Simulated scan of single mutants.
Amino acid sequence: MPPISYAGASEAPADAATDRFDIARHRFPDIHRIAVLRAGGLGDFLFALPALHALREAYPECEITVLGTPMHEALMRGRPGPPNRVIPVPPSDGVRPGLVNAGETDAFFARMRDCGFDLAVQLHGGGRNSNPFVQRLGARHTIGTRTPDAAPLDRTTPYLYYQNEFVRGLEVAALAGAAPSRYGCEPVLARVPGASGIEVLTKAGIAIGDGPLVVVHPGATDPRRRWPADRFARVAAELAAEGPVVVVVGDEGERMLCDAVVESASRRPSSASRVASVAGLLDLGELAAVLGDADVVIANDSGPRHLAHALGTATVAVYWIGNLINAGPLTRARHRVHLGWTARCPVCGADCTGMNPAAARCEHDESFVADVPWRDVYDSARQLLATAPPPATPPT
């Protein structure tokens, strides 16, 4: 049981020392509507899935609403939850980037208070901005993470940056008496009924046949997390020469990067016709279908890698060591990671560990993972293609 800070002494359990592992005894009564704030990127939403499943099992009759982004809403369209629904939040300082409109913000909170949430869950960082946001929802109970300088909620657990996000979310869910669900501590996302990644690729002119499908995503929001494109190309070419079809994915902004991977891989004649890019051609639902039908996904620490993981696909990922702590898979049967151990900027030597909160990020974008050998990634992909056990049955 995580350490709990209670706003009121009367709420504290009478025998917390002996019952600290009895998570269920902290369950709130008469909970019918739960709001969960998680308004970050694609990966941020996926990191919250273990907590959402835990809340669903603890409160099986509840409606669970994620206060997120239009991307999260698009991802869940037609997909079995949790959550039951996603409501995009308006731009808000420290919660969602964008131009803040006070009238729009006030109207949003008025609508949320009308929803009559019984429990509001803050899964959106240390709470300096997100805890006041959650307080404005008008829920009867509030829980979440908290830095020492953040506003209090009814129940909180300390926010310390270096912690796996799946486990962080589960610590917060435990504040409401929700233990890890039957799906465990890693993300599980249901597939949209009838969605076929093979059909998506066929419509894009890519014939898969009977061989394995390997999907490569060479992008990442932070350039420092990107493994060099020529390494992805080498792995793609070597695998394609052995029979799999390799499809490179990315959004419109990553099209040139993906084209560079395909161009470099095509220089090996035996693999030229078996490596193709669909970058910029797929919407989020189509991307999810393709990732879900892949035999292996090879990627950086990125949203598509996390999405493939949640859909039950085996992954090989290149991580900077600091990001592995927060965003890496917990298991290795279906997920392999290769680490860049860079602790200082390769250009200016600035400390990049984050251990000094006062240190500003330097202006350089050199890769922190360039030292990861291509052969290590290739070998992991081949091993998973040969031996990866089947995924668990997704929720319905």
Rank of each mutant, 00 (worst) to 15 (best):
P2F: 07
Y6E: 06
A9P: 02
E11N: 13
D19C: 10
F21C: 05
D22C: 08
A24P: 01
A24T: 11
R25Q: 15
R33Y: 09
V36E: 02
A39F: 10
L42Y: 04
F47H: 15
A48L: 11
L49F: 08
H53R: 13
A54F: 10
Y59P: 05
Y59F: 14
C62A: 15
E63V: 15
V66H: 02
G68C: 08
H72D: 10
H72T: 15
E73D: 14
E73G: 01
R79A: 07
P80I: 08
G81N: 10
P82F: 04
V86K: 00
P91K: 08
A102C: 02
A110F: 11
D118N: 13
Q122K: 01
G125C: 08
R128A: 06
S130H: 05
N131C: 07
V134Q: 00
Q135F: 01
Q135G: 10
H141N: 12
T142A: 01
I143Q: 00
I143W: 01
G144F: 00
T145S: 10
P148I: 07
L153C: 00
D154P: 06
Y161S: 03
Y162T: 04
Q163T: 08
Q163A: 15
F166S: 03
F166I: 07
V167S: 07
E171D: 15
V172Y: 00
A176Y: 08
P180L: 14
P180C: 14
P180G: 05
S181V: 13
G184C: 14
P187Y: 13
V192Q: 07
A195E: 02
S196V: 04
L201W: 04
A204N: 06
D210M: 02
G211Q: 11
H217A: 10
D222Q: 07
P223T: 10
R225W: 11
R234W: 14
L239C: 01
L239N: 00
E242V: 00
E242L: 09
P244G: 02
V245S: 01
V246M: 03
V248N: 01
D251M: 09
D251R: 03
G253S: 12
L257V: 05
D259V: 07
A260M: 10
V261K: 10
V262Q: 06
A265E: 03
A265L: 13
R267E: 14
P269D: 11
S270T: 14
S271Q: 05
S271K: 04
V275T: 05
L281P: 00
L281F: 06
D283R: 11
V290D: 00
G292T: 06
V296F: 03
D301Q: 05
S302V: 04
S302Q: 08
S302H: 09
G303S: 12
A308R: 10
T315R: 11
V316G: 03
A317K: 04
V318I: 12
I321H: 12
P329R: 07
L330M: 15
G340N: 07
G340W: 02
G340Q: 05
V347M: 14
A350W: 00
A350N: 11
D351P: 02
G354M: 13
N356L: 15
A359Y: 11
A360I: 12
D365W: 08
S367W: 03
A370T: 02
A370D: 12
V372D: 09
R375Q: 14
D379V: 12
A381I: 13
R382I: 04
P390T: 07
T396M: 12
T396G: 09
